[in-house]
Computed example of a mutant assay.
Amino acid sequence: MATPVLTPERLAASYSYPAYRQLIDELQAEGKTTGPQQSELLTNYTRLNVQRMGRLDKTIHLLPELQAAVAALPRRYAWLIITEGWCGDAAQIVPVLEAVAQASGGTISTHYLLRDDNLDLMDQYLTNGGRSIPKLVVLDAETLTEVTHWGPRPEPAQRMFLDLKSQNLPFEEFSTQLHGWYAKDKTQSTQRELLALLAALA
């Protein structure tokens, strides 16, 4: 029998989406961000990310076929989302994950955990040996065993990320190009990959 990814108590101690957003806002008001590392740079990234998440929360339109797939889910799932407030990819993706869960009418519940407070979990879901986020871990809501996982970013963005990384670009240029891709893509790649993930669950 598969082992639960985490205990019910630990899941219950996770953040809801509103609580996650509130945490980031409260830390921002203090000139801080999530996680043990604090710097003006990370705080500035977080400020940008708050704007990105706020914009996406208001403008996301789920693909009709994704909405249909959510409606057809056969049982309840808990989505465990490993993230941090300073992470730009998380700001582009987390609102999409939340929108999908909200469209499920309660079939999908979301549970947010901060990466650096949960390294034992994060280290089960490394990407090329790195602690890349956001990471979505789909759990059976009853058993808390893993069904599948996804992340840290859609495949076209991941290819671009690896290409830019190989060029040793300054971070600002690297980040500008990657977020430019997200802006042009308008969450479509993320939605299509989540559609494939949900189709596999049906």
Rank of each mutant, 00 (worst) to 15 (best):
R52Q: 12
G105E: 10
D116S: 11
M122I: 07
R75N: 08
Q67P: 01
I81F: 05
P4Y: 11
L198V: 07
F161M: 14
H149G: 03
S39W: 09
W181Y: 14
L197F: 04
A141F: 02
R55A: 12
E26Y: 04
K32G: 06
W150S: 01
L169H: 06
Q22S: 14
D120I: 04
G35W: 05
G31V: 07
P36A: 12
P152Q: 02
Q67S: 14
L198Y: 02
A29V: 09
D89F: 03
Q28P: 01
T46R: 01
R159H: 12
D57E: 15
L162H: 12
D57Q: 15
P74W: 13
E193C: 04
H61Q: 15
C87L: 08
S166M: 13
G151H: 02
R76M: 07
D57I: 06
A200D: 10
L27V: 10
P18Y: 12
D25Q: 15
E98Q: 14
R76P: 01
V50W: 03
M122A: 11
L169C: 07
D57Y: 06
V70E: 10
F174N: 05
A90R: 00
Y45E: 02
E146S: 03
Q158E: 11
H179D: 05
L6C: 07
A19D: 15
N118R: 03
P8G: 06
F174A: 10
R131Y: 11
S39Q: 05
G88S: 11
A99R: 01
A103C: 10
L195I: 06
F161I: 12
E193W: 02
P36C: 06
N49V: 12
V138E: 04
A19Y: 10
L23Q: 05
T3Y: 04
I108G: 01
K32R: 15
G129H: 11
L97M: 08
F174H: 12
K184P: 09
V70F: 09
A29E: 15
L6Q: 03
